[in-house]
Structure formats: C-alpha cells, structure tokens
C-alpha cells in the first residue's frame, strides 16, 4: 500500500474528471433544471394570475348583473308611471271630448229650436194672411200691409 506516482496520475485524472463532468454533465443538466424550474414558476404565476383575473371578472359580472337588475327595475317603474300617466291623460282627453260633444249637441239643439221658431213664425204669418184675407173677403195689398203683418208675426 505504498504511495507511488499513481497518486499524481490519479490527481490529474480527478482534476480532468471534474472539468469534464462540469462541462458535459453538470453544465447542461443544471441549466436544463433551472430552465424547467423557471418554466414551472412562470406557469404557476400565470395560473395564479388567471385565477385572479377570473375572480375579478366574476366580481365584475356580478356587479354588472346587479346594475342591470336595478336598471331594469327603474325602467319598469318608469314605464308603470308613464302608463298611469297615459291613462290619466286619456281620461282627461275623453272627458274634454265628451264636454265638447255635449256642447256641440246643445248648440245644434239651440240652432234647431231657433230654426223651428223661425219656420213657425213664417207659417203663422202665412196663416194669418190667409185667415185675414178670408175674413175680409177682399183683396189686400200685400205690399201695403207688409209692415203690419211683419209686426204681427214678430209679436207671436
């Protein structure tokens, strides 16, 4: 078990081995492991980010839903208000229309009554003329007595 020149040779071999292992085994594989570690870390970070974003989106969706619900409720309330308004308006219009129709009918009735009166007056004047002419049995100058007849007719 002597220490011989083999020791020196083995030292040289060992040093060469270290360098070769560093170059061919440690270097590539540790670089690879680091790259993979980085990739995994990136993937995990991305997943985390995605999860976070999903949470945000869910929150936003909830908010939007809530907002639209309240908007819908507002719209319905407005529509109901508007509907009742329209109904009221229609009622008012109808009432106005009815009044107007009644007024027009009244006016027409008044006109008819006046016309009838006029007609009656003419008829009476003719009747009086006829009656008078028959009573006197003589010809009466219609022109001369027109003023008198008209006065009589006006008094009826």
């Amino acid at each position: 078990m002597n220490i011989t020149v083999t020791l020196i040779a083995q030292m040289a071999a060992f040093i060469v081995m270290i360098m070769l292992v560093k170059k061919f085994l440690w270097g590539p594989v540790s670089g690879l492991l680091e790259a993979r570690q980085k990739r995994i870390a990136d993937g995990l970070a991305a997943a985390e980010k995605g999860k976070h974003e999903q949470e945000l989106a869910e929150k936003r969706a909830k908010e939007t839903l809530k907002e639209s619900k309240s908007q819908a409720a507002d719209i319905i309330a407005q529509a109901q208000k508007r509907a009742s308004e329209i109904v009221e308006e229609a009622k008012d219009n109808a009432r106005g229309e009815a009044d107007r129709i009644v007024a027009a009918a009244n006016a027409e009735i008044a006109t008819e009554v006046n016309q009838a009166k006029e007609h009656l007056r003419e008829q009476v004047s003719v009747l009086v003329m006829t009656a008078a002419s028959q009573v006197l049995k003589r010809e009466i100058d219609a022109k001369a007595h027109e003023k008198i007849i008209k006065d009589v007719a006006a008094k009826i």
């Binding site: 002597n2 011989t4 020149v5 083999t6 040779a9 071999a13």
Partner: peptide
C-alpha cells in the same frame, strides 16, 4: 509490490 515512488498501479489507473 511497489518498491519506490516511481511505480505505477496500472490496474487502478
């Protein structure tokens, strides 16, 4: 056996 320093153990190497 190795007798001095200048002996090389070929099998080991």
């Amino acid at each position: 056996q190795a007798a001095g320093f200048w002996a090389l153990h070929v099998d080991t190497l």
